[in-house]
Design a protein around this nucleic acid. Structure first.
Lengths: 263, 263
DNA sequence: CATTTTTTTGCAAGTATTTTCTAATTTCTA
DNA sequence: TAGAAATTAGAAAATACTTGCAAAAAAATG
């Protein structure tokens, strides 16, 4: 069983080389890996062309070429991504919607990722919150807010994601019962649920979901309908889905059968 | 007899070789031991392929191949660092002396403060360490080092110092027994010992000292012979004192009666 | 514009890598 | 020590990569 990871957006018009390479980079950063065949399909060019593009990008150290495809260097959620203004504005839009869901006195859990970073930055200065997080960056951003009590969920830190994982975190989470859990990254599909590519992160996220009364998923529409290696949870565990799209957007149709709030 | 541990995750799409190998490494690190058959099952590839992958990873020293499967193994590395001489600030001078006290494979505790930050930055890239810290900044700096395993001691974060304090930290520390504790800030006096002005920080530092076989104090000479409100420990609890001064400097005379190493 | 130059693209034949399979060992374990 | 399980090796099949080359597309030129 083979599933294409590349989003279904069809490219009709012919693309310039530069455009194409940017698309390839976007896909790599978004999905952390791409197959040359998928790229060839969605770009409507021969596999040779894609191969040449990837080879060039590899030479420029913008991605890592591997047999059959390409992968990104680590999962640099905090550096590479910010070059993409398009994605960033989507994320800010998501963050704004998310912040509007928060209210004074709540105790919440926040995972890492760029989207959650935007949420952390956008939290109103006067909002009183208690936030637990295993993400160094999110913790750092939250400490700017006088009225937010920040509790770091300690544990072994992942070098690239700057995120705590492991038994300590999961254990600490097992003793918590919070109002809200905000999961910032991940891939969402109606059938397969929430999936990720990092196994250790999955463990933490599962523990986060268990520790919260409600779970909010934040995701840019590009990551909808795509599936990764490991499964975090079913759609049924999700209470609210926040995307940059209008809640009535047809792209969200496949999620409507579930009992969840679309924002 | 070993049980099959791998299975919960459904294979959804075709994997690139590199991805597969990362998966194998994940599993090995998680379960400490994996069976080739289990891997073959969960990866949906022939046992030959898994065997070849494991063989390659073994050649790269990323895991140890054993009959029927693979196991993870502890660290094995070597180090050689060089020293350059140029104009340096007091803190950098202290940091350099401190780094020279470290050796491969040690498990250490580091507090916060700017001096400790310099230590974190100066740690040689090849040095293999496990570092526990309650300081966001130190953790961040340490994460630049591939060979340093960073474990954050989570807890309530102080907004200004970006330092975790409280019962969680003290509790976690009470279950540790490490080689070395490096305390980066504080005021030192022969008669009154190590003193601080933040009560919550004191609690954490005391727990750190208790958790370590040896305690190293780093302090610039300006902070010698001064006393603060709260006491962390007596001079007798200190094993090594690092300042920017020459060990024979008269300013250090009052500390000589104690059984401690001056660096 | 028309023409030349340069770049880009797709094709094809040959090469290399990866994966699977079979069968003959070797190693483990009861 | 016999039988089961794991390993090795060799070959075939599938997939991916390289290279050279010619056609097509862009860009530059007069």
């Amino acid at each position: 069983m083979l599933f294409s990871l590349v989003s279904q957006t069809e490219r009709i018009y012919s693309m310039l080389k530069e455009e194409r390479q940017k698309y390839i980079l976007d896909q790599v950063h978004l999905h952390h890996r791409v197959l040359l065949n998928d790229l060839s399909d969605s770009l409507n060019v021969s596999i040779d062309t894609v191969r040449r593009d990837v080879k060039e990008l590899d030479a420029e150290k913008k991605l890592k070429k591997v047999h059959g495809g390409a992968t990104s260097f680590g999962f640099m959620t905090f550096t590479k991504d910010d070059g993409n203004i398009y994605l960033k504005s989507k994320k800010i839009s998501i963050a704004e919607k998310t912040v509007s869901l928060l209210s004074d006195g709540q105790v919440i859990l926040m995972s890492g990722g760029t989207t959650n970073m935007e949420v952390a930055k956008l939290i109103p200065k006067k909002l009183v919150l208690t936030v637990f997080t295993p993400s160094l960056h999110v913790a750092m951003a939250l400490l700017d807010h006088e009225n937010v009590e920040v509790i770091f969920l300690g544990g072994k830190l992942l070098h690239d994601a700057k995120f705590a994982v492991g038994g300590t975190v999961v254990n600490a989470l097992s003793q918590l019962r919070v109002d809200l859990c905000i999961l910032g990254t991940g891939y969402l599909d109606a059938k397969f649920g929430l999936t990720e590519f990092d196994w250790e992160v999955i463990q933490v996220k599962q523990a986060m979901i268990r520790a919260a009364k409600k779970t909010i998923i934040l995701t840019v529409s590009d990551k909808l309908h795509s599936v990764q290696k490991y499964k975090t949870c079913d759609m049924s565990a999700v209470h609210t889905l926040v995307t940059e799209l209008d809640p009535s957007d047809p792209l969200l149709d496949s999620f409507r059968p579930f009992e969840l709030v679309l924002v």
